[in-house]
C-alpha cells in the first residue's frame, strides 16, 4: 500500500466559521434538530404550571424558539421542515396526529401560521440582538408576543371558521382560551432564548471575519 502522506504545518486556532453564505452542515443540523425539538414538545405531555397545575402544551413554544434562537431564515426552515414531516404522515403534531388529514382538521390554521410566526419572531430578534444588549428578555418577549398575535391567532381563528365550521364569534371565543397560556409561553421563550444566546453567542451574532 502506498504510504499516505499528511502534512500539517503552521498554527491552528478556531478558524471554523467562514463567511460563506451557503448553510454548512451545522446550520443544516440546527434546522433539523429544532424541527425535532418542536415535534418533541408537541408530542410530550404538557408541563403543569402554577398552583392549579394546568398543563400547557409546548408546541408553539418550540415554534417561537426556532425564530428567537435561529433567526428568520433557519428558524422558518426548521418550522417548515416540521410541517412537511407531519404532512407526509409522521405523527409529529399534537396528539400524535400527522398526514395531509390535519389540513382538514380544526387546527389547520394554527399549523399553517407556524412558519410565519417563526419568520416574524426571527426578524424582530435579529433587530433586537444587533442593536442592544439591554432589556433583552423584555424585548424578545415582545417579539414573541407580536409574532403570535400577528400570525398564529388570526390564522388559527380563520382555520376554526373554515374547517370546524364555527361562526367568527365562537371561533374567537375558542381561540381566546389559549391566550393566557400563550403569554406564559412567550415569557418562557424569551427567557430561554436569552439563555441560549448567552451559552452560544455565535448562533445569531454577525459572523466575525476570519482574521483579525
Amino acid at each position: 500500500m502506498q504510504p499516505a502522506r499528511t502534512t500539517v504545518t503552521g498554527t491552528a486556532g478556531t478558524g471554523r466559521r467562514s463567511t460563506r453564505r451557503r448553510w454548512d452542515a451545522t446550520d443544516l443540523s440546527l434546522v433539523a434538530v429544532f424541527a425535532a425539538l418542536i415535534a418533541a414538545l408537541a408530542i410530550l405531555p404538557g408541563i403543569p404550571v402554577g398552583p392549579l397545575g394546568v398543563p400547557i402544551t409546548l408546541q408553539t413554544l418550540g415554534v417561537l424558539l426556532a425564530g428567537l434562537v435561529l433567526g428568520p431564515a433557519r428558524g422558518t426552515a426548521a418550522v417548515l421542515l416540521y410541517l412537511v414531516a407531519g404532512l407526509i404522515g409522521l405523527p409529529v403534531f399534537s396528539g400524535f396526529s400527522g398526514g395531509f388529514g390535519v389540513l382538514a382538521g380544526p387546527t389547520a390554521g394554527y399549523l399553517l401560521a407556524f412558519p410565519l410566526a417563526a419568520l416574524v419572531a426571527g426578524l424582530l430578534t435579529l433587530g433586537v440582538l444587533r442593536r442592544t444588549h439591554k432589556f433583552r428578555v423584555v424585548l424578545l418577549f415582545l417579539a414573541a408576543l407580536t409574532a403570535s398575535l400577528l400570525t398564529i391567532h388570526p390564522l388559527g381563528i380563520t382555520g376554526l371558521m373554515i374547517n370546524a365550521g364555527l361562526p367568527l364569534r365562537d371561533a374567537i371565543l375558542v381561540d381566546v382560551v389559549y391566550l393566557p397560556g400563550d403569554v406564559v409561553k412567550d415569557v418562557l421563550a424569551a427567557l430561554l432564548a436569552v439563555s441560549v444566546h448567552r451559552a452560544f453567542p455565535r448562533l445569531l451574532a454577525a459572523k466575525p471575519p476570519l482574521r483579525a
Binding site: T26, V33, I56, F200
Partner: peptide
C-alpha cells in the same frame, strides 16, 4: 412546577447536540 428549570437544559442540550451532529456530518 417551574417550566424554566425543566425546559432550559432541554433547549441548551438540543443546541449542543445540533453542533455535535453538524460536526459529525
Amino acid at each position: 412546577r417551574n417550566p424554566r428549570v425543566v425546559v432550559t437544559p432541554l433547549v441548551l442540550g438540543a443546541v449542543a447536540y445540533a453542533h455535535r451532529t453538524g460536526e459529525a456530518l
